[in-house]
């Protein structure tokens, strides 16, 4: 905004907006920092009945372990409870979901963007309705057939299901990105004698990466953050991180090691921090592209 507007802003207003932003930052980031810090303490500190400041200084942690910081929670989660297996599972599921959804999505999204026929519109509408449906409603439809065919509990089944659930969203997003690529580009290639697929391969693919990366980020988030599908469709040895954290809560509460769950939660959070850190611009542009958000 122009400086004249800024000049006019009174001291009180500056004070008010600044404190509002500071308060918001505190609300948005505070819980994460608190949990990150607390994950290196012992349970009597992080869940301190006597004084909340114990969690800051680690009073009980020093008493129990001899130092103000401890990696016991992480050791318990990663080594004793074998959380690394779930991390690998999440890696596999997320990687294949993103790659397959983007491959199918670019082809379909391109076709939808270039076809003006009425059925293209109806497909997009169906996609919109599919996207709004809670995933758990679909999950109840998978279970019985999957049991019958003996494919329940496998990572590959879950990947296919996540790809399918991801498709409506991927199609919508890539469709709007392809609409922004001028039609003339691929059409002039076709005038020069390319087939439609060649035009797509040599003209569109080189320029589509910004859109694909943004869509890929949101596919990643959908697969990584999913709980409903993975919790119901994966057997316990194939669980990914999020359903595993949930099952921690049941078992760990009994044995009194909540800190395992806290450490696991922080571990699962860290990749997302880096994702936002590196791809902030793409995430913001994706969110504002309209009709977007998993």
């Amino acid at each position: 905004m122009s400086t004249s507007v800024a000049d006019r802003r009174s001291k009180g207003l500056i004070w008010f907006t600044t404190s509002f932003v500071v308060l918001w930052i505190f609300i948005a980031a505070g819980p994460f920092l608190w949990t990150l810090w607390g994950s290196f303490k012992v349970q009597p500190d992080f869940f301190s009945k006597t004084d909340w400041r114990n969690a800051l200084y680690g009073v009980m942690t020093t008493v129990q372990t001899g130092s103000a910081f401890t990696g016991d929670g992480y050791y318990g989660a990663w080594v004793e409870q074998e959380f690394w297996r779930n991390t690998i599972n999440t890696g596999i599921v997320v990687f294949f979901t993103v790659v397959i959804s983007l491959t199918l999505g670019t082809l379909g999204g391109y076709a939808l963007a270039r076809s003006g026929f009425r059925y293209a519109f109806w497909l997009l509408m169906a996609g919109l309705v599919f996207r709004a449906m809670p995933h758990i409603t679909l999950v109840s439809g998978y279970l019985l057939p999957f049991f019958e065919w003996n494919v329940w509990g496998k990572l590959s089944t879950t990947i296919i299901v996540l790809v399918a659930i991801n498709q409506p969203f991927t199609l919508w997003m890539l469709h709007s990105f392809f609409l922004n690529i001028p039609k003339d580009m691929d059409e002039s290639a076709m005038v020069d004698g390319c087939t439609r697929f060649q035009a797509f391969r040599y003209v569109i693919i080189p320029v589509m990466w910004p859109g694909v990366i943004t869509t890929g980020l949101f596919s990643f988030l959908l697969a990584y953050n999913d709980f409903a599908v993975t919790a119901v469709l994966l057997s316990s040895e194939n669980q990914t991180m999020v359903p595993r954290i949930n099952s921690f809560l049941g078992t760990v509460r009994e044995t009194g090691d909540v800190m395992f769950a806290v450490a696991a939660v922080v571990s699962a959070m860290i990749p997302l921090f880096f994702l936002v850190l590196f791809f902030q611009r793409q995430i913001v542009s994706g969110l504002t592209a309209g009709a977007v958000k998993g």
Binding site: F227, N246, Q280, V284
Partner: peptide
């Protein structure tokens, strides 16, 4: 962005 990006369950 953090509260929105982080897994809902977490």
């Amino acid at each position: 962005l953090l509260p929105m990006i982080v897994t809902p369950l977490i």
